[in-house]
């Protein structure tokens, strides 16, 4: 602060970046903000509505239900995928051709486009020709994702776990590989149990990749659209209608530009807020606790 040379022309260096961000993010976002506070009836007929759309969106029963479904879905898949991903990473082979083979096998689901995943599972779960649907029916288990909401939920969660756990596993695997051998050696000399090695070496060293994994998986799952849309179409009823599907119906199906713009902004802010709170909490956990009592 004291020996820095003030030179405001340095801001010019940031300019290209600013222009780029403006075109990629700020301008499109502002158009949404623009729609969210107006009622657009035609090219020349628009009225300023203030926060009216926001209020009606927040009070909409269908959207509230979709929001709760969305939150539950994200929490469930995080609760399954993160521990499962860590577990898979721990048992993956460390070196040799087996390591490469397992890595390739595990990556395969990640390479499949979203709507193809939906189609695969849609066929897979069909009672007449799908392996899983047919198999369960032959076993005498009643299973129908188009009629039973529970079946639909289980299937969507299963599908997401199958599709995305590999990402968590790969992130954890890379995190585990970066732990120097000396840590394991020191732990052996300190007579640490397997659990202690996991709890005090592996897990702490995985913190950073896990933060990324949780954030990515949260954002992804909170925005999930194509897979349930193809698999269940949001049904049965609205049992698996998540936020983006509600939004699409509103914006594209009904052309309600004002409400859907307001809804989009709320949607965006929720994701931003949750991610920020999560990240800040984790980072604060790593700091020293302030000394007790007054100084």
């Amino acid at each position: 602060m004291n020996n820095k040379i003030p030179n405001n022309r340095a801001w010019l260096l940031v300019l290209p970046m600013l222009v780029l961000v403006a075109f990629s993010a700020i301008i499109p976002l502002m158009t949404v903000v623009n729609y969210s506070v107006q009622d657009v009836l035609g090219p020349n007929a628009r009225f300023f509505t203030g926060t009216e759309w926001f209020q009606s969106m927040l009070n909409d029963d269908a959207l509230q239900a979709a929001f709760l479904r969305q939150i539950s879905f994200s929490l469930i898949i995080l609760a399954i995928q993160i521990p499962l991903g860590i577990g898979i990473a721990l048992i993956m082979p460390k070196r040799g051709w087996q390591a490469s083979a397992v890595l390739i096998l595990i990556t395969l689901p990640l390479l499949i486009p979203w709507n193809v995943v939906g189609s695969i599972w849609q066929i897979f779960t069909r009672g007449d020709i799908g392996l899983m649907g047919w198999g369960l029916r032959e076993l005498g288990i009643e299973y129908n994702i188009t009629r039973n909401a529970g079946d639909a939920w289980v299937t969507i969660i299963l599908m997401d776990v199958w599709h995305w756990t590999p990402l968590v596993a790969m992130l954890c695997y890379s995190g585990l590989r970066s732990i120097p051998e000396a840590y394991y050696q020191a732990a052996r000399i300190d007579r640490a149990s397997k659990w202690a090695v996991f709890r005090y070496i592996q897990l702490p060293k995985l913190t950073n990749v896990l933060v990324i994994a949780v954030l990515l998986r949260f954002m992804h799952s909170f925005m999930i659209y194509a897979e349930p849309f193809v698999l269940t179409g949001g049904g049965p009823g609205s049992a698996t209608t998540f936020l983006s599907q509600s939004l699409t119906t509103m914006a594209v199906g009904q052309q309600d530009l004002g409400p859907s713009a307001a809804f989009s902004l709320i949607y965006f802010l929720v994701i931003l807020l949750v991610s920020w709170v999560f990240y800040t909490t984790i980072m604060n956990m790593q700091k020293d606790k302030p000394p007790h009592g007054g100084a």
Binding site: Y200, L203, K205
Partner: peptide, 10 residues
């Protein structure tokens, strides 16, 4: 060891 090994979270 050459590089200090400590248990980060403790």
């Amino acid at each position: 060891f050459q590089f200090p090994v400590i248990y980060d979270t403790m």
